[in-house]
Amino acid sequence: MPHAPEKRSNAPVFWLLFGAGGTLSALFGVGLILVTGFLAPQGIGISADALSYENALAFTQNGLGKAVIWAVISLFFWHAAERFYLTLKDMHVFSDTGRRLLTYGVAAVVTVATAGLLLAIGFNQTM
């Protein structure tokens, strides 16, 4: 017969964030590095001032731009956090609370800090 139900794990929260970050990084990670790290700075196939201060500021002052930056930064961190958490767990490094603080904790701080900074930059009223 089925045994008594085990206590429900809260892993789904972290696993879905991990999955979202993994999907995002797989689809856009390499492209973002290529565009922002090589193509745009070198002016290859894209205008050299595409990432100028004014353009970058305008992007972050747009609501959709803020959402994109927030998702890319925070979800990438949640993805890495889950991988590091499981690696530390397998290697028996730190206590479980310590591991969670070090991995999920960092991702949570980065998520909140990114949101705070994006809001602090403000919205461009003319757009």
Binding site: E6, K7, R8, W15, D90
Partner: peptide
């Protein structure tokens, strides 16, 4: 529903990496 309840814990599906 019965089966989900049997494996929704840390030692269920979430024990897999």
């Amino acid at each position: 529903a019965l089966r989900i309840d049997a494996v929704h814990g840390e030692d269920g599906v979430w024990g897999c990496t």
